[in-house]
Computed example of a mutant assay.
Amino acid sequence: MTAIHRAPGDFPGGRAGDVLVVGFTVCGIPCIGLNGGPAFPQSAAFSIQIATDSQEETDRYWNAIVGNGGRESDCGWCTDRWGVNWQITPRTLTEAMAKGGEEAARAFAAMMTMQKIDHAAIDAARRG
């Protein structure tokens, strides 16, 4: 969190003093979140993707999100305690999908059986 801005007055769906805008940083990228109130709930239509280079990095992000009140989902997705959806995606999976053909099909089939992505299993699927 880099900033928290509260509403200076009442507004539709909120009151003075409610958190209105927050600033935060994800992997060095500055972001802003706006509290749109109950008319604009968070959904799976928006997610933050983190590309990882190792199983240790995947585990670190996954465990930080899921272990802090979040929940696991399928295919490398998880949801944090605030309902924001995350994709923790190993680069080896992205690379396999970009190759296309049988390599992509094997990596995709392997991914479909996982929650947190297993780098070694994706690499094995890529090799056939």
Results as ranks from 00 to 15, higher is better:
A3R: 11
P8Q: 11
F11P: 05
A16M: 12
F24Q: 09
F24V: 10
F24R: 07
V26K: 00
C27Q: 14
L34T: 06
L34W: 13
N35H: 12
G36T: 06
G37S: 12
P38L: 12
F40N: 06
F40A: 12
S43A: 13
A45K: 05
F46R: 03
S47F: 15
I48N: 10
Q49K: 01
Q49S: 15
T52L: 03
T52P: 02
T52E: 08
D53F: 00
D53I: 00
S54D: 08
Q55T: 03
E56Y: 03
T58I: 06
T58E: 11
D59F: 03
V66G: 11
G67T: 11
N68R: 14
G70S: 08
R71I: 08
E72Y: 06
E72D: 15
E72Q: 14
S73G: 07
C75F: 01
G76R: 05
T79F: 11
Q87I: 04
Q87G: 02
I88P: 14
P90I: 03
L93K: 10
E95P: 02
A96E: 02
M97D: 01
K99Q: 14
K99R: 14
G100K: 09
E102P: 13
A107Q: 04
A109M: 01
T113Q: 13
I117K: 05
H119I: 14
H119S: 01
A120M: 09
A120I: 01
A121E: 13
D123C: 02
D123A: 09
G128P: 10
